[in-house]
């Protein structure tokens, strides 16, 4: 019964958005009224979306709570998770509902001086991995690999000022930024459009399966 209700709601929700997008607001003088409900429907979905944030927090708390309770390997990191989560939650609540200079300072320390540098650091590690991956992977073995490596080098240098500086004495039509722009605007656009065509055809099929609840993961157990 529960499963049937979920499937019906999924079907009706998808049908509403599809019809609202496709049908005009008026057909032969009669208003379809579908667009009148777009704002309340949007608000409902926004609330459900926000629920996902809370659900994520609950799931994380359950997972880490079990780890701490059973003293599994790495339980100390779960304690760190709870401390960080509670510190940020309490600070943000106080900053919103009872802001004082001390609370603001604490918020600045947690968000600007801890969270931001940590987040930036994790992402910046990619630069080192990209350099070593490019060094190891970009070997010219075949004709296609040659084309890929040459175009990668042109784009990498053309996208930054050093490419312009290196080719500044050449005619403007063959300077690296212009060649790189041609590759992106013409060659890349054509190839990407072709790939996306195929991807979107697949996405239509997947979307239909999700809408009609034909996907295996849609079953409630």
């Amino acid at each position: 019964m529960k499963e049937r209700v979920v499937k019906i709601i999924t079907l009706l929700g998808g049908l509403y958005y599809f019809l609202e997008f496709v049908l005009p607001q008026e057909i032969k003088g009669h208003t379809t009224y579908l667009s009148s409900f777009i704002v309340p429907m949007g608000n409902i979905l926004m609330v459900l979306w926000a629920f996902a944030v809370g659900l994520g927090l609950i799931n994380l708390s359950i997972t880490h709570g079990k780890k701490v309770k059973k003293l599994e390997p790495g339980w100390i990191y779960s304690i760190a998770f709870f401390i960080a989560m509670l510190a940020m939650m309490v600070t943000c609540f106080l900053d919103t509902y009872h802001p004082t200079s001390l609370v603001r300072q604490f918020y600045e320390i947690l968000f600007t001086r801890m969270y931001m540098p940590l987040g930036a650091t994790i992402f910046s590690l990619l630069a080192l991995f990209m350099a070593t991956s490019a060094y190891r992977a970009m070997r010219v073995r075949t004709f296609e690999a040659t084309v890929m490596v040459v175009s990668a080098c042109i784009i990498m240098l053309g996208q930054v000022p050093i490419g312009l500086w290196m080719t500044r004495t050449l005619p403007s039509c063959i300077q690296l930024p212009r060649v790189s722009a041609w590759l992106l605007w013409i060659a890349n656009t054509a190839a990407y459009r072709a790939v996306m065509f195929g991807i979107y055809m697949g996405m239509i099929a997947v979307a239909l399966r999700l809408w009609l609840s034909l996907e295996k993961g849609m079953e409630l157990r």
Partner: peptide
């Protein structure tokens, strides 16, 4: 920030060239 990015891009291109010299 564009200047350090330029230098890293140039370094990666040089590394790719060196890697291919070594490979061949």
């Amino acid at each position: 920030l564009i200047v350090p990015q330029s230098m890293v891009h140039l370094l990666i291109v040089v590394l790719i060239v060196l890697a291919n010299i070594g490979f061949w």
